[in-house]
Design a protein around this nucleic acid. Structure first.
Lengths: 327, 327
DNA sequence: TTGTAAGCGTTATCAG
DNA sequence: CTGATAACGCTTACAA
């Protein structure tokens, strides 16, 4: 910027004025400055500007599980959309369900002075964010609530969704319903299991042998399904706890001949409607989740000091065929 | 930091030493400083540190088409992985195939002084990046080459993949092969069309009535398929130009009774193997694309001054059934 | 082992 | 309308 000033034969401040489109610069002076900027290929250093002005960095950080998972990538995209609308940029990182990585990412983002943080907690303790929140960085948790810290959270009705799925299967005559969930270390997995147990309790006693929590691999899913099938009273229906598990289960089922349980998956899949039978799912709206969380975050960034909020979005059962197979 | 220094009754520099784990600080002094840091909830301002030290911002920018598209989200994840390995953070943004947005994103990223830029060009002119490259910010183009600027590019063999698909269909007796591609404004769409035409030229003359380029909507795809079917000599096989179009085409085909052309899609789909018939695809490795591009970028960031490189990754035909249907 | 002074690139303040 | 000077929070260079 000094170079530009020298070349345009004006002071530093005048260049700054031109760059920031401040009023009160003579047209010909501005002209000269612009020419110098052009000639020197000058580009303002945003970081330095923020440092001095103490203004915002116009960026938000997002820590999620895995950008490559369709659920989280849809969420990220929605956040990005809201951010762009506010003239903000998005820093994103995947924790890969690793508490340490979540923490490192979140703190690194804070050290960069992001104006706000959106976090899908992987670990079971977010106390490390207390200092940041106290220092004024708004944090909004998405998909799962933060633990050990009071902050906004935007979630979906996990339990209600699974419960509705169980009721739906029961209405089609099923009593031997199996559940294939993710590791109970994950909040959503616990909630979905709870919904399953509630739903089952309404039609009798849930059979623990028909419940298998993760983490799952293709092999573990395959093994669980074989067990469900070889029970004295085999399962006639299956509820899967997330889109990863649904895919593994469908693949394993396709390889098993002569057993066709009804299936309902948690979270939609892109080609679900093209499978035969089409896949019935418990739909959760990742975009909406991201949009609402981002808007809440921007409200906080803008100074909203209202009490902590916990928003729970509904889930919706989408019957397509696989969940309507009779017992 | 001054506050910490005051509280610990040491100089600014000593605090800096402790924060940066520099050697040569007495244990008890360090102790006192740490206590002060703890008490005041001090967190270093990375931006200020970079400003003075002139060091890197330890961040890279990624401008792509749409993070929510599985192809690009897999790519993003791979980039992230490489970045984390280097201790870098990733700024990502979607251009949504809009040239203006691509430009704004890229320049905003540069103003933040990212150490390098990974760009999937949406527009047809990347000259606006010349100044940045001249100023020393390495740029690597991914999936599509940049125009009007000399920079590295990591691409896949689009034409070769489609050509192989056509040959594969021809080997199964097909001559009336239709192509449903994306808008020719997109480099990859043009390349894939070129591959199609080459492939067709080898088995006769390509029929322009069996080619329909985008942009596509569910309706346009439906209409195109109906035309392909109602030709005097209906198409017996179909090649789709990307994963979005493949999904639209499969959905439209499922709604059309009595016509079952062989289908090969460009780019894999998560449930492709579970469809009936299973979907034959031209596979491109998004993760590998992202990984290689990121590694090239980090090499440039590290000072690699070798000549501009253009890397072209192979594509691979994955026969699963839909592409092996006889005429 | 610790401290002082200068300066990174920008904007704020206040004077001409 | 324009400019000199200080300051943002930190690190570097050099002393003590």
């Amino acid at each position: 910027m000094v170079d530009v000033a020298r070349r345009a034969r004006v002071s530093l401040k005048t260049v700054s004025r031109v760059v920031n489109r401040e009023a009160g610069v003579a047209a010909d002076t501005a002209e000269r400055v612009c020419a110098a900027i052009e000639a020197l290929g000058f580009r303002r250093h945003d970081g330095a500007a923020h440092l001095r002005s103490g203004s915002t960095t116009a960026s938000v950080g997002v820590v999620l599980m895995d950008v490559a998972d369709p659920f989280y990538s849809a969420l990220t995209r929605a956040v990005e959309e809201v951010a762009i609308g506010h003239g903000f940029l998005v820093f994103a990182g995947s924790s890969d369900e690793d508490a340490l990585r979540e923490r490192q990412l979140a703190l690194a983002l804070c050290a960069r002075r992001v104006d706000g943080l959106l976090v899908v907690p992987a670990g079971t303790d977010q106390r490390y964010l207390r200092a940041e929140v106290a220092a004024g960085t708004p944090v909004v948790f998405v998909d799962r609530p933060g633990v050990g810290i009071s902050a906004d959270a935007v979630l979906v009705d996990n339990a209600g969704g699974v419960r509705a799925a169980v009721e739906h299967l029961a209405a089609h005559g099923h009593r031997r319903i199996a559940f294939l969930g993710d590791t109970p270390a994950i909040y959503t997995a616990r909630e979905r299991l709870r919904g399953f147990e509630h739903g089952m309790a309404a039609i009798g006693r849930p059979d623990p042998r028909l419940i298998e929590m993760g983490p799952h691999t293709p092999r573990s899913v395959q093994a669980a399904l074989h067990r469900f099938r070889s029970e004295r009273h085999p399962a006639t229906a299956l509820v899967t706890g997330n889109n990863r598990i649904t895919v593994l289960a469908l693949r394993a089922l396709a390889a098993m001949r002569g057993w066709h349980p009804a299936v309902i998956g948690f979270d939609d899949l892109e080609l679900a409607d093209l499978l035969r039978p089409s896949l019935t799912v418990i739909e959760q709206d990742a975009s909406e989740l991201g949009r609402i969380a981002a808007e809440l975050l921007f409200a906080r960034i803008a100074g909203d000091r209202r009490p902590i909020r916990r928003v729970v979005l509904p889930t919706r059962l989408v019957p397509r065929g696989s969940g309507e197979l009779k017992r």
